[in-house]
Nucleic acid binder design. Sequence first.
RNA 1: GCUCCCAUAGUUCAACGGAUAGAACAAGAGACUUCUAAUCUCUAGAUCUAGGUUCGAUUCCUGGUGGGAGCACCA
Length: 617
Amino acid sequence: MIEVQKKIEKLIIKALGELDIEADKVHLEHPVDLSMGDYSTNVAMVYAKKLGKNPREFAVEFAEKIADSIQGVEVKGLNKQKNSGLKSNKVEYFFTNFFIKKMEIAGPGFINFYLNESFFEENIKDILKAGEKYGSNENLKGQKILIEHSSPNLFKEFHIGHMVNNSIGESISRIIKNEGANTKVISYPSDVGLGIAKTVWAILNPVTKGGDYEKMLDFIKNGSVDNEIKEKYGTDLLQAQINILGQCYVFGNESYKNNENAKKQIDEINKKIYDKSDKEINKIYNEGKKLTLEYFEKIIARLGSKFDDYIFESEAGEVGKEIVKENIGKVFEESEGAVIFKGENFDENLHTRVFLNSTGLPTYEAKDLGLLKLKFDKYSPNKSIFITDNEQNEYMKVMLKAAEQINLEWTEKTKHIGHGRLRFPEGRLSSREGNVLTVVDLLEEVKDDVLSKMDNFEGDKEKTAEQISVGAVKYTILKSSAGKNIIFDKEKALALEGNSGPYLQYTYARAKSVIDKAESEGIKSSSKKTNEEILDIEKLLYRFPEVVERAGEEYEPHYIATYLFELAQAFNSYYGNNKIADKSDENAPYKVALTEAVAQTIKNGLWLLGIEAPERL
RNA sequence: GCUCCCAUAGUUCAACGGAUAGAACAAGAGACUUCUAAUCUCUAGAUCUAGGUUCGAUUCCUGGUGGGAGCACCA
């Protein structure tokens, strides 16, 4: 594909040279509208002005130069035919025995190139040969890339905001891996801080006495589960315990706001969690941490992610605190008992932030500095990427500006990606009030919907329903550009029809089913093209690697989502209007090969999005 | 108040400075004894506003309006 592009570029540059225009790069693009050819260039319009000519007229003149130079190429049997449509406002050149089949001048002065059938034939062959590797590249070969995402707040539930982070983070990780990089994917769990102190306080001061509630808290306090409780909840025990911790957080949070005494105790607990001085608190804390981390891993696994390592906030805090202390007077200054960084002194758009609070504890900003250092000390990556929601964009700029003063390497190699947030039509998603939609609740709800459509399904219904539900939610997140907020209407956004994850999965399963049919009919797939017509499917298939590349350059998985949907639409339309596995059709072998190529491409694309492709649904 | 982000059909989203601004949902009309109808085919509808740069602007720049986020000891 790249070769073809290079060849066209060369033709254009040569023709420009004949007009005494020096150019080493020309703009070549795929027209969005598939009927306008495979490659298109705007050079005629760009240079027309410099020559003081009418763009359209110059395009005609310029195309003639290209056509002449093609004629000059030593190709056996090459034949040029010019066709000026008097009515259509189009000038066309046809070539035979050349990799370009047709060249035309269209619109305000575009020159469009249509590729020869053999190109498409080769492409199908390449896709089937590459298999799972189709779409991969070596752009980042030899690079060690560290990616951090999905950092949970331990002791709290995993709400759908985290799902956005996870979906984008997982997809970007896969895209980077697909570029040949040696990736390390880590998470940065928040295991210290006021939120956790609030929860721990509520465990020590339960809102209600007795019942399951207290028995489950017992588990956290003593590390052993009451047998009765164990039996009652079975495999849902962990979930039930997490729910209780969630309630504890809400109660602790309320108390912190409304009860002076509780506030004092919670602040005290917060300090003790940092300095590990209280045995009872340590015990509760350690159990809670273990429990919530286990829960986090379980959900993450359900979503198809796995982390190579963790760096905990508590570790980063200690390191960060030292960094800040060492740089007081140089980077940081003391003010009102706290240690601050005056961002505005370095960049007028930045502001002041506190790095160590007046009790000497590291704030989020100091912890992030520590995290940076730990990342580079532990992994020495060529590049370190971390993904958070965009509420932190401004904050990150200040933190990174401070980091830049300390170690330039950290910031030069660090890239922060801020993604949009999920918003309900009514307003923001709240995590403070406790009535948030958790990932598990959402998935279960979607799954019920999915299962209701699977009455006639044969096979592992549960597993497939899970794959579809996760795919539906992930696709909703990934189909739009990552930086912008997403208005999340549960009913509409999670539709299983139209531009959705299940649509792609369905298309894949359908293609597989056609392939099965062909096999049982004894049709052997062949990439030998038997007719001249070029289908939209073919025009789309070869663009996949370029789309993947662009998604990687811009850290934008949605390009892949959009592409897959277009490809699936093209295939479904073809499927609806043509019989593919028809023994009596001489074109059947090629049609089957085409179907195989579509299936493979969709599967590879879905993998890059972190979505599974069930063989049947 | 200051800083940053955003504004496209009724709704949710696309569109590497290009061609007739694409989809999906919702609405209406059709298509399953056939390779999976979670599908396909057809029908209507949009670039917040005022300028500027450009052969060409949804895209870049400036002002305005509207929304979101951040701005000292939360994460």
